[in-house]
Design a protein around this nucleic acid. Structure first.
Lengths: 242, 242
DNA sequence: TAATTTCAAATTGTCGACAATGACCATGAA
DNA sequence: TTCATGGTCATTGTCGACAATTTGAAATTA
C-alpha cells in the first residue's frame, strides 16, 4: 500500500533529518505515538538509528508544524488537541478555505476543475460501496479541500493550509476517532461548491465553502456537547466525591 | 553585561539558540541582512560567537517563520518578497483578520477595548506631531491589528498572524521602503472597526476589517502598477543596456 | 507524619571534528 | 571562442562527547 507514487509522495528526502521528520509525522498523525506522551531525544535517536543531530532538526520541524510541543530544558511531547483548540482550528479553516474557494473560482483552470470533479466522483463511488466505512470517505473529503486550496494559486494559502493545518485535522480524526457523520449533506455541499467554482461565481463559492466548514464545526461542537452531557450524567449518580 | 532590561525585552531566552534566533530575526526584519543575500553557517557562527549547533536550530526556526529559505546541501538565503507574494499575503490577512475582528466583537473584554482605544489615541497623536514620518505610524498600525487578533481569544489565529505573518509584513515594509500612504482614511476605518467591536456587532466588524485590509492591498497594488509603468517608460527611451 | 532539603540520575543544550555533497574554476579540446 | 571535463575548495550533513539544567526521590528534620 505504500507504493503510491513514491516520487510524488516523497519529493525530496535527500537528508536523514527529512526522512525521520516524515516518519515521525506519519507516526504522530496515525496515532502510533500517543498524544500527550513524552518523546525523548535519546529514545527516538536509538529507535530510528540516527544520531541526535538530525533528530533534533526533525523535532524542530515537527514543532513548527505544531505536531509536538517543546519546553526548553524539559522536553517535548506529542500535541494533545483539546476540543477548544479543535474549534479554534475550524474558525481558522472557515476563514482561509472560504478565501481559497473564492480565489479558486477566479483562477482555477479547466483541467483543475476536471480533476476536482473526478475526486468528487471517486468520493461518491466509495460512499456507495462502503456505506458504513467513513474513514476513506474522510480522506476523500480532505482531498477535495486540498484541491480547492491548490486551485487558489496562492502559495502562501497552500502552505498554511496544506502543510500545517491539514496535518492537525488528520491528527484530530485519530485522536477523537471521529467517524465522519452527515455524509449525504456534505456530498451535496461539495457539489454545489464545485458548481459555483466552475461558473466562476467567486462570491457564491466563498459563501458555500464558509457554510460548509461552519456546518462541520457545528456538527463537531454538538457531538462534543453530547459527550460532555453524557459524562456529567455518569458522574452524577455513582460518585459524590470529586 | 547587556543591561537592556534583560527580564523585559527577553521574556524567555534560556537558550543560546533562542537568543540568536531573536537577534537574527531582528536583523532580517530591520534590513540589516540584505534580502536575497546568502547566509552561511560558519559565517554567522563566528559573527555571533556560538557553535554551529544552536545556530542551525535558530536558522531552522527562521525557516519555519519564512524569513529565510533553505535548500538541502546548498545553503540558505534571506527571503526576498516579490510583489506577487506580497499580494498573496494580503489575501491571507484579509481572510484571517476579518475573522479575528468578528471573534473580537464577540469575545473582547471591556478592558481590552479600553486598551484598543488607547492605541488608537496614541496613533492619532503621533500622526498629529510627525505628519510626514510614516514609520511610527505604521508600527502603530501593526499594534492596532495585533490587539484585535489577541482580542479574538483564538490562540491558533494569534499564532499564525502574530508569530508568522506580521514579521513578513514588517519585512515587506523595509524591503519595499513602504511609506504609509492613505493615513487619514485608515484612521477613520480603524475607528469604525473599534466602534463595531464595542457594539458587539460581529458581522459589521468582520465586514469593515475585510474592507480595510482589502483597501490596503489595492493601494499597494496600485502603487506597484505605477512603479512598473514608470520603469517601462524609463527603459524605453534612455538606456538600451542595463 | 508532613514538609523541606539534598542528591543523583537522566535529559537537554552545546561544542568540535569528520564525512558527503555541491559549487566554482582552471584546463583542455572542438 | 565556446563548451565539456576534471579537480579543488568551501559549505552542509552527521556524529560522538562534554557541560548545564531539571526532575524525582530519598533522606533528614520539625
Amino acid at each position: 500500500m505504500n507504493s503510491v507514487t513514491p516520487e510524488l509522495s516523497a519529493p525530496e528526502v535527500r537528508t536523514l533529518a527529512e526522512r525521520v521528520f516524515n516518519q515521525l509525522q506519519s507516526a504522530i498523525v496515525r496515532g502510533e505515538l500517543a498524544p500527550g506522551s513524552k518523546i525523548t531525544e535519546p529514545g527516538l535517536s536509538k529507535a530510528y538509528g540516527i544520531s541526535r543531530g538530525p533528530l533534533r532538526e526533525a523535532m524542530r520541524r515537527l514543532e513548527a508544524h505544531r505536531l509536538i510541543e517543546r519546553v526548553p530544558h524539559v522536553g517535548a511531547r506529542v500535541v494533545k488537541l483539546s476540543m477548544k483548540e479543535l474549534l479554534e482550528l475550524f474558525d481558522v479553516r472557515e476563514a482561509l478555505e472560504s478565501m481559497a474557494a473564492r480565489l479558486a473560482a477566479e483562477h482555477m483552470s479547466a483541467e483543475e476543475i476536471v480533476g476536482l470533479r473526478e475526486v468528487l466522483a471517486i468520493h461518491e463511488r466509495q460512499a456507495d460501496l462502503k456505506r458504513g466505512e467513513a474513514y476513506y470517505q474522510r480522506e476523500g473529503d480532505l482531498d477535495f479541500h486540498f484541491r480547492i486550496v491548490q486551485g487558489s494559486h496562492n502559495r502562501m494559502l497552500m502552505t498554511i493550509l496544506c502543510d500545517d493545518l491539514y496535518y492537525l485535522v488528520r491528527l484530530y480524526r485519530t485522536q477523537f476517532s471521529a467517524s465522519g457523520t452527515r455524509p449525504q449533506r456534505a456530498f451535496v455541499e461539495h457539489h454545489r461548491i464545485v458548481d459555483a467554482i466552475e461558473a466562476g461565481d467567486a462570491e457564491l463559492a466563498e459563501l458555500l465553502m464558509r457554510r460548509h466548514v461552519s456546518a462541520s464545526r457545528a456538527n463537531v461542537a454538538d457531538r462534543y456537547a453530547a459527550v460532555l452531557k453524557q459524562e456529567a450524567e455518569q458522574e452524577a449518580s455513582p460518585s459524590p466525591a470529586e
